[in-house]
């Protein structure tokens, strides 16, 4: 049986300043390739920035993080994998929007809440050897 392998992109990103841009640029190219709308593409980029930076911060191991894009006809699945110690997704605090706005830290810390807003589904698998965040964006046929 010939196994169907969906076209995929796998990135291994060192934890360095501005490397999240490599991820978002990749996401942009993929979104174009998949003919996603500009809006969807923007949402993916924003979610990816959050996920990547979260992974940078949570991954105390200082190792690289892995990002896997899996392209199918109707959706894009992105996995952000860090090899740091995991965290309890249930325990994540929803940030206080007002205080965040007042502190003018708009770029940072929206984290999971934002990702959930931006993507169609978000899922965490966390263990002692790291965390895998899986998020999908559905291709809407207008």
């Amino acid at each position: 049986m010939s196994k169907e392998t969906k076209p995929s992109v796998e990135l291994r990103i060192p934890i360095l300043k501005d490397m999240e841009l490599v991820a978002t640029n990749t996401a942009d190219v993929i979104a174009k390739y998949m003919e996603l709308s500009d809006e969807a593409s923007g949402e993916i980029s924003m979610a990816l920035i959050e996920a990547t930076i979260n992974a940078f911060e949570h991954s105390e191991s200082q190792k690289d993080i892995f990002i896997n894009f899996t392209i199918s006809d109707d959706e894009l699945t992105i996995k952000v994998i860090d090899k740091g110690k995991g965290f309890d997704s249930e325990g994540i605090q929803i940030p206080d929007i007002d205080s965040k706005l007042k502190k003018q830290e708009r770029k940072r810390g929206w984290g999971v809440m934002l990702i959930k807003e931006l993507m169609d589904s978000v899922d965490y698998e966390s263990g002692n050897d790291g965390t895998t965040l899986t998020m999908t964006k559905k291709k809407k046929n207008e």
């Binding site: 992109v9 796998e10 291994r12």
Partner: peptide, 27 residues
Amino acid sequence: IGFVYGNNTIDNAKRLLSFSSHLSRKI
């Protein structure tokens, strides 16, 4: 920094190649 991969069919391979070089350029 990573790979683009997919089924090793002639058409797909071509697509993946152009995709990967495009990505490299973008990055």
